[in-house]
Simulated assay, not measured.
Amino acid sequence: MTRVFNLSGGKSSACMTILEKPTRDDIVLFTDTGREHPATYKFLDEIEKQEGFKIHRAAYTHRRSPGLAGFDALTNWKRYLPNRVRRICTVELKILVARRYLRPLIGLRFEQYIGFRADEQRRDSNYRSTYKGTVTRFPLHEKGITKAMVDAFWLSKPYTLEIPPILGNCDLCFLKGKNSIIKLMALYPELADKWITDEKRSGNTFFPDVSYEQLLAIAKGRHKDFNLEEAQPAYTCHCN
């Protein structure tokens, strides 16, 4: 059975993939939302270069959003913004994109590998595969590998992901919560532009009570003496 490694672009899933030594018969898949930090794409390029395996990259497109891909394509034609209750982005940009990419290559029966660690038992136990007949494995959890061990792994490498964990996945995802988003905007105000554009184009907001433009205004008045390494998302993201 073909092995499919779900590589989110983060340190844990990358560590898992490298330790499992994917072969030419395996598929290492990164589903690109188009909202990752530039350092994530650089990290993926380095993995391919340093580890010697191919990373398959797939992104959402739609005929009603010509020339656009990922999050931009989705919100452009739907005119609907995902939120914490209706997270259509996870389904459309990750799950369905992976399904459409894999079906013509290997069908939908395979052994999928996910990078949940041993200290993320809730994520492991709550996971439900969307593929019937597919075997799901969590190698890091099986081997007792924790965040500290993943960090140690990357210290042994000549390259790493050069952003704090809170910047992983979609850079200003609403699931990170208002406080974390304000902190990120204070240090990286340029990241706010595309999210503000989404809200203005759709006439809606990601949060029911505040816009990203308002969050940016708050961020500009904040001190920048906080440590993003310690920032935690408000809600668990299943995109990775």
Rank of each mutant, 00 (worst) to 15 (best):
K224F: 05
E229S: 10
K220I: 07
Q232W: 08
G221S: 02
V210D: 05
S202Y: 01
A219M: 11
R222Y: 07
G221A: 06
K224S: 05
G221L: 07
E199M: 06
E213I: 15
H223C: 09
L215D: 04
I196H: 00
A234W: 07
R222L: 10
K220Q: 13
P208R: 02
V210L: 14
P208M: 07
G221N: 07
K200M: 14
Y235Q: 10
R222K: 13
N227D: 15
E230Q: 13
K220G: 11
P208D: 08
R201E: 10
R222Q: 12
A234K: 13
T236D: 12
D198M: 03
S211G: 02
F207C: 04
F206W: 12
Q214D: 08
I218G: 05
L216I: 14
H223K: 14
I196A: 01
V210E: 14
F226A: 05
H223Y: 13
A217Q: 07
K220N: 08
F206C: 12
Q232E: 13
P208A: 07
G203W: 04
D198A: 12
I218L: 15
L216R: 06
Q232Y: 04
D225C: 03
K224I: 09
L216Y: 09
T197H: 00
A217F: 01
K200R: 13
H223S: 12
T236N: 11
N204I: 15
K220H: 05
L228A: 05
R201F: 04
Y235T: 11
T205V: 14
T236R: 15
G203M: 13
N227V: 13
S202E: 01
F207L: 13
N204E: 14
A234G: 01
F226W: 05
L215T: 03
D209L: 08
V210Q: 10
T205E: 01
K220P: 03
S211W: 02
N204H: 13
D198T: 02
Q232N: 07
F206E: 01
K200V: 15
F226H: 08
E199L: 11
Q232S: 09
L216A: 08
F226L: 11
F206L: 14
A231C: 06
L228E: 02
Y212M: 12
F207A: 03
K224G: 00
P208L: 09
G203E: 09
A231H: 06
N204A: 15
Q214H: 06
T236C: 04
G203K: 08
D225S: 07
D225T: 12
K224A: 03
G203L: 14
Q214I: 07
I196C: 00
F226I: 09
A234M: 06
A217V: 13
N227G: 05
N204R: 15
K220Y: 02
G221V: 00
F206R: 03
Q232I: 06
Y235S: 07
L216Q: 04
G221Y: 01
T197Q: 02
A234P: 04
Q214E: 15
P233C: 03
L216P: 00
F206Q: 01
A234Q: 11
R201T: 11
F207S: 01
I218P: 04
Y212R: 04
A217P: 00
H223N: 08
K200Q: 12
D209A: 03
Y212L: 12
Y212H: 03
G203Q: 05
Q232V: 08
Y235D: 09
Y212I: 15
A219C: 09
K220R: 14
I196K: 00
A234H: 05
T236Y: 09
